[in-house]
Amino acid sequence: MMLFLMAAVPALCGVGCLFHSWKSARKHGRSLVIYGWLLLLLSLLSWIQLAGAEYGVVFALLFPAFLAWLMIVFQRRKGRRKTSAPRTVQPMPAPSWQGIGRNIARFLWLFAGLGVAMLLVSVALVMQFPFAANLNLASALLLFPLLWAATVCWFLSSRNPWKVSLLSTVAALVSSLWLLV
């Protein structure tokens, strides 16, 4: 219990400092932010002391969320929640088959096309890492989803998605040549 308090209290104080820095905007804001993060770091060390390095890091990462959510709920401005006027219930407009087709094609490209491309790029990249072969492959477990997700975001937010697709395809071709030929 004592060890739990030693981990929970700094976390509470740390999130409290961040909360007050947010609330008091400019006044002491910067120093409170620094104190806040230092206290959260102290809490991490206490969690590690309490539960070991592996569990401790997980607890230290997740626990502050609860404290922050509690503070958010308690400081919520008690204004009356506006109830918007009832909206008209309309029948759904007829779907545009062209639009549906375009979206399905986009999904397939994001899932299958970019997925396979980033798989090849990831495996080719991790094999350049200077670690043991199995640690290189384990790194691909992090790199592959990250590259895939980043490329999906890039594709969807790009003004010129064809450029993203072309670059991904070229990168995948180069990777597959290096890996499989």
Binding site: L18, M71, Q75, G79, K82, P145, A149, A150, V152
Partner: peptide, 28 residues
């Protein structure tokens, strides 16, 4: 992966997400 893409795009789409870390406004 889609969840990860949502996290990345969500962070980029909300530049004030850290600044408003504790805000919960009343309203609509």
């Amino acid at each position: 992966v889609i969840l990860l893409a949502l996290i990345i795009s969500g962070l980029l789409a909300h530049p004030s997400i850290i600044k408003d870390a504790f805000a919960w406004r009343s309203g609509s």
